[in-house]
């Protein structure tokens, strides 16, 4: 089976994670998150039946929707900002993220032998790259919304990797619960902090 087309969703997934790591505009971040889940779905179709892969897409988009509705409803505190130039911090995160992606590409053969996955390079590249970018995000930022975004990114990478290793219905159900739980916790943090900022 020709899987070279899978490098397109893999690249899209990494790009979305890189955008979330770099930019601080919640609407852009949520669009990137939705794209990330779509790419994840496309990659998953190479190892799973489309009906199974669709579960991850629906759950991911539901999580994105929960965050979108919350951010849209908490009003001016989280107002949408227009396009902004990159600040020095954002530029630094961009470079750090690029470094991680290059690192993943360079060491891909070693990572492949570690996970005994000889065939599916695009899936492994997207999974490990996204996990590293998610890790970078949670370690560089202290705002609750972006930490939740980082965790969702990390988990989507991990789920992609694990989906190619093991299939279990209970595991799928628990992962869905965790993703939705993380989104709800993120929404809870947003509402709570907005209430304090603008009583």
């Amino acid at each position: 089976m020709n899987i070279s087309w899978l490098f397109i969703p893999a690249g899209l997934m990494l790009l979305a994670a890189e955008v979330n790591l770099t930019r601080r505009q919640w609407l852009v971040n949520l669009v990137a998150l939705a794209v990330q889940y779509l790419s994840m779905f496309l990659l998953l179709t190479s190892v799973r039946a489309p009906s199974f892969a669709l579960i991850k897409l629906i759950v991911g988009w539901m999580a994105t929707l929960v965050l979108y509705i919350t951010l849209a409803s908490v009003g001016e505190f989280y107002a949408v900002k227009g396009p902004q130039r990159l600040s020095s911090g954002q530029f630094f995160r961009l470079l750090a993220g690029l470094f991680m992606i290059v690192f993943t590409i360079v060491f891909l053969p070693q990572i492949q032998s570690l996970f005994l996955m000889e065939g599916n390079q695009p899936l492994l590249l997207a999974a490990v790259g996204t996990m590293l970018l998610g890790l970078l995000q949670v370690s560089m930022i202290s705002e609750p919304f972006y930490i939740i975004l980082g965790l969702l990114t990390f988990l989507s990478g991990f789920e992609l990797l694990y989906a190619s290793l093991e299939l279990s219905l209970l595991l799928e159900a628990l992962f869905a619960g965790i993703n939705l739980g993380l989104a709800l916790v993120g929404a809870y943090f947003l509402v709570k902090d907005a209430e304090i900022e603008q009583p």
Partner: peptide
């Protein structure tokens, strides 16, 4: 972290 209290960094670290 009940409502009325700002989100604590310790709690975020716990989840991470």
């Amino acid at each position: 972290s009940p409502r009325g209290k700002k989100t604590d960094l310790g709690l975020l670290r716990y989840i991470v």
